[in-house]
């Protein structure tokens, strides 16, 4: 199959399901709580992490034979921080509007434990191409969960999706609100993100019993 061998494909597909960074490895929970009150923010964050993790994994992989093992975590932090800052600067200069939307996420990307986790667990021991695939796969697995959580939190919490009022207008009492439906303000608060993630974990483990640990 040319570009991707079976093993390579698994690098991408595994984190999407049975080895998902959020629901199985329980990494990156903090950012999943912080920014999923809106679907749009979830999507932006997913794309940012996809970029940083894909490129970062390649950089670390290329450097893997020269990084002194005693300070490897520091080196990884420096690489990810440099990448994020450069992206932020370039966006500020050439896509100012976008950079304003993204500013909230810069700090969250640097401290995202999925990124450090993949550098440490995969890129340090594998070649650049496989590391790139692993980065893309894990970022996608992270993004999928973020988008699912963002979808439910924005829909049930604000009655909107991507800012569009899909359930009617709560103030003018149109649409669903006319028959007494109310937004659940609880959904906008961080604990509810944890509960939604919990439900996803429950559903996933119920479908695949092999994932249940004793």
């Amino acid at each position: 199959m040319g570009l991707l061998s079976k093993k390579d494909t698994k690098l991408i597909s595994d984190p999407l399901a049975d080895n998902n960074p959020i629901t199985i490895q329980v990494l990156g929970i903090c950012s999943a709580l912080a920014i999923t009150a809106e679907l749009e923010a979830s999507i932006v964050m997913s794309v940012s992490v996809l970029f940083v993790l894909g490129v970062g994994n390649v950089v670390i992989s290329l450097m893997r034979n020269i990084i002194p093992s005693k300070i490897r975590i520091i080196v990884q932090l420096v690489v990810v921080a440099t990448l994020v800052i450069i992206v932020d600067l370039v966006l500020k200069a050439f896509a100012y509007e976008l950079s304003k939307t993204l500013s909230v996420f810069v700090g969250l990307i640097i401290t995202n434990c999925i990124i450090m986790g993949r550098f440490e667990a995969f890129a340090l021991g594998n070649g650049p191409w496989r590391s790139f695939l692993d980065g893309i796969g894990n970022a996608a697995g992270y993004g999928v969960i973020l988008i699912i959580v963002g979808f439910f939190r924005e829909l049930l919490g604000s009655g909107t999706l991507l800012g569009m009022k899909v359930l009617g207008d709560p103030i003018e009492k149109s649409g669903l609100y006319a028959i007494g439906y109310e937004n659940n303000g609880f959904m906008l608060l961080s604990p509810m993100a944890l509960i939604v993630v919990g439900i996803i974990i429950w559903v996933q483990r119920n479908k695949n019993k092999a994932l249940i640990e004793d």
């Binding site: 020269i66 990084i67 002194p68 005693k70 300070i71 520091i74 080196v75 420096v78 440099t82 800052i85 450069i86 600067l89 370039v90 500020k92 200069a93 050439f94």
Partner: peptide, 28 residues
């Protein structure tokens, strides 16, 4: 080696970021 690597990395990254910041400053 560890110390030399750290020094080299700091110099490289520092100048890279300084260069990026000052060359993009007018546009920003």
């Amino acid at each position: 080696y560890t110390i030399l690597f750290a020094i080299g990395m700091v110099i490289l990254v520092g100048s890279l970021l300084a260069f990026a910041a000052s060359s993009l400053e007018p546009a920003i």
